[in-house]
């Protein structure tokens, strides 16, 4: 409108509030997980053994690294190093894609074994294993959707930075996208041990 209004701290705070809503969104699935785990500890371990721990670990490293690159990108824009910032954003997007490709292979292997929500094979494996895989697919699926959204967001931000719309003076959009990306990382930090490492 007519009067220029700017409040970077407010913008960041708004983003944090949005991240809270995301945490609660995932917490619904984590509640289901926790209750089911306490009910079927043995079955959950059995289900966990069938997940590929190597792919899971690689994806953890990929996400942690992408979190580093986007954090560095924020520092880069603050120090007005636009080229570095663009490279770091690019690396983040590539890592997001690597994560998704990994996930694709992981899921295809599992689905080819007849393990997917509502499958006959899963039903024969018993109630606990069934619950484990249902929750695994829905939680990881929702997380994957967030990786997709976060990656696209960072792609858009990179383009805006290249066009000079995001500068060292005004970079809240980059900062907020980075915050979203860190949240994706945070969710995975909990998701990984709970699904891949149950013994």
């Amino acid at each position: 409108m007519s009067i220029e209004h700017r409040d970077d701290t407010g913008d960041r705070f708004g983003m944090w509030l949005f991240l809270y809503t995301e945490v609660i969104l995932f917490s619904g699935l984590f509640i289901l997980y926790a209750v089911s785990l306490s009910r079927f500890p043995g079955d959950f371990a059995q289900g966990s053994h069938q997940l590929n721990i190597y792919l899971g670990s690689i994806n953890t490293i990929v996400l942690l690294t992408s979190s580093l690159t986007i954090a560095l990108a924020v520092s880069a824009i603050q120090m007005n190093r636009i080229r570095q910032c663009l490279t770091l954003c690019g690396v983040t997007v590539v890592l997001a894609l690597v994560f998704l490709v990994n996930k694709y292979f992981e899921w295809s292997a599992e689905i080819s074994h007849g393990i997917y929500p509502g499958s006959q094979h899963l039903a024969e494996m018993g109630a606990g294993v069934s619950a484990f895989f249902n929750l695994y697919y829905f939680t990881a699926g929702l997380h994957g959707l967030h990786v997709l959204i976060g990656g696209s967001l960072i792609g858009v931000v990179a383009v805006l930075t290249a066009r000079g719309k995001i500068t060292s003076e005004r970079y809240t959009l980059l900062e907020n996208s980075a915050l979203f990306w860190h949240l994706v990382d945070l969710v995975w930090i909990f998701l990984f041990p709970l699904y891949y490492l149950i013994l």
């Binding site: 954090a71 860190h182 041990p193």
Partner: peptide, 23 residues
């Protein structure tokens, strides 16, 4: 105890992400 250790480490990791990466 496995689960609690896993959750503890995850909490530690997420605090690092929250306080440093997320400023």
């Amino acid at each position: 105890l496995n689960v609690w250790v896993a959750l503890g480490v995850a909490t530690l990791k997420s605090s690092l992400v929250l306080f440093f990466f997320m400023h």
